[in-house]
Structures are given as C-alpha cells and as structure tokens.
C-alpha cells in the first residue's frame, strides 16, 4: 500500500512537472514567439523523438559514464569513510585535515586535470580518480557529523563497561552513524555522476558528457542535447535510488526515522 502511494505521488509530481514544461514550451514558442524557443525549452515530443532516433548510441554512452562514475564513487566513498573514521578517532587529525579537505574541493577540474593526468598517464584512470575526488568530501563530512552526534551518555556507558576502542567503534559509533553515511552517499552519488559527465568532456571520445558538449558546441546536432541532459539526470537519480534501496536493506527502520514516518 505504501509503495503504491509513493508511486502515485511520484507519478503526480512528475506528470505535473512535465505538464508545466510542455505548457512553458508552448508558451515560449506560440505566445512569446521566441526564436530560440526550441533551444530554451523544447516540446516533450521533440525530446522523445530525438531520444528514440539515437537511443542505442545515447544509452551506450550513458553506460560508459555510469561505469566510470560507479567505480569513482566506490573509491571515493571508501576513502571518504576512512577519512571520517580517522578524524573521529583523533580530534587533532580532524582539526588538522578538515580545512584542507574543503580546500581540496576548491581546485576546479581544469586546474586539477593536468595534475591527475600527469600522475596516472591515462584518461580512463583519471576519469575514475576525478569522480572519486569529488565523491569523498560529502561522504566524509556526513559520516563525521554522524560519528560526532552519538549521545555522550552512551559513550560514557561503554566506558563504564570497560569497552575498548574497537568495541566502541564497531558496537556503537559505526552502527549509529550508518544513516549519516547513507546521507552522504545519497548526496555523493549524483555528484559522482555529474563529475563523471564533466570528465567526459575533458578529452574523451565517449560518455554522455561528450555527447552534451558535442551537441552544445559541435554545431548542428543540437537535438541530442536534451535527451542527453535528461539521461544524465536520470542516471544521477538512479544512483540515488540505488543508495536508498541499499539503505533500506542496511538500516533498520527504528534507526532511520521516528514514528512520524508511518
């Protein structure tokens, strides 16, 4: 019953948004008579026909991006989680490196790319590393937030039971923080996809980002821009739904939310 209701709700929202887009597209083209109407907001049927005209090509490019985004995401998530644990274990380490983790995110890909290319000498490795580089930060910050939000009284209790550090982490801190970890993962997943799309544009010949840039700047074949954009957004959504599904498996309902969720 619940899934039916959420499904219905999703359907209503999506249809509402689509109707709004369709109306806006009509308004731009017919009422405002904007010469760039098709470039600003196209009719849905145009996007759909552009997609089915090149479905095989677009999907295979999407597959390429998904592969690199997925690998980069896993790498970034592992590194991010490790950093968060390290920072929780030592306040000194946290104070030392947290500001620099933030700084690391300020170096734009254009400045970073030559360094990563130089290090790995391979476009495909660089694609994974850059996706990981952008993923690790939200995972680290979210998980650290979780690790630090544990009720002090519980930790005191553990101390009074003479629990060692390993026990404290595996029995209290980590299980408590799992929902926070998932929050970070949920944010990071679409970002990893977005990063992989960005890296597609660097110097590759495939990937959905390549299609976007090619249709934006390659001249002519602009029709594929919209399906490519929507496809990349859908990959991002899919990645988040996947994490949400994983979360449902890994986190018990009692932990995740209060009764208000029912």
């Amino acid at each position: 019953m619940k899934t039916f209701k959420t499904g219905l709700s999703t359907g209503v929202w999506i249809c509402g948004a689509l109707a709004l887009i369709q109306f806006a597209a009509w308004f731009l083209a017919e009422v405002v008579r904007d010469p760039l109407a098709g470039k600003r907001l196209p009719y849905l049927q145009d996007v759909i026909s552009a997609f089915f005209g090149n479905a095989g090509y677009l999907l295979s490019q999407a597959g390429v991006t998904m592969r690199y985004a997925g690998l980069g995401f896993l790498l970034g998530a592992v590194v991010g989680a490790a950093l968060a644990l390290l920072m929780r274990a030592s306040g000194l380490v946290e104070r030392m490196i947290l500001p620099y983790l933030l700084l690391s995110q300020m170096i734009p890909i254009i400045g970073l790319a030559p360094i990563i290319f130089g290090l790995f000498k391979s476009l495909n490795a660089a694609r994974i590393i850059i996706a990981a580089y952008i993923t690790f930060f939200p995972v680290s910050v979210s998980l650290l937030g979780g690790l630090k939000s544990v009720d002090e009284s519980c930790i005191d209790l553990m101390h009074s039971c003479a629990a060692n550090a390993w026990q404290r982490y595996t029995k209290l801190l980590i299980p408590w923080s799992v929902p926070y970890l998932f929050t970070g993962l949920k944010i990071a997943a679409p970002v990893a996809v977005s990063a992989a799309v960005l890296v597609d544009t660097l110097s590759s010949r495939d990937g959905i980002g390549y299609v976007i840039v090619l249709t934006l700047y390659g001249g002519g074949t602009t029709g594929q821009f919209w399906p490519a954009l929507i496809l990349s957004a859908l990959i991002g959504l899919g990645s988040m739904l996947l994490i949400t599904a994983l979360e449902k498996i890994c986190v018990s309902p009692g932990m995740k939310s209060g009764k208000g969720d029912e």
Partner: peptide, 30 residues
C-alpha cells in the same frame, strides 16, 4: 537500536567488500 543496527552493519560491510573487489577488478582491467 544498537543490536539491529549491528546486524545490518555486517550486511553493509559485506556489500562494500564485494563492491570493493568488483571495483578492484574493474580498475585493473581498465
């Protein structure tokens, strides 16, 4: 809360391990 979380945590760890292995294979072939 803790107990149920613990069991689920083990599941997650396993999933991560498997995923890590897959990633390892993927990137070496890459």
């Amino acid at each position: 809360i803790r107990r149920s979380g613990q069991r689920k945590w083990a599941v997650l760890l396993e999933a991560l391990l498997v995923a890590g292995l897959l990633a390892g294979c993927g990137s070496t072939s890459q």
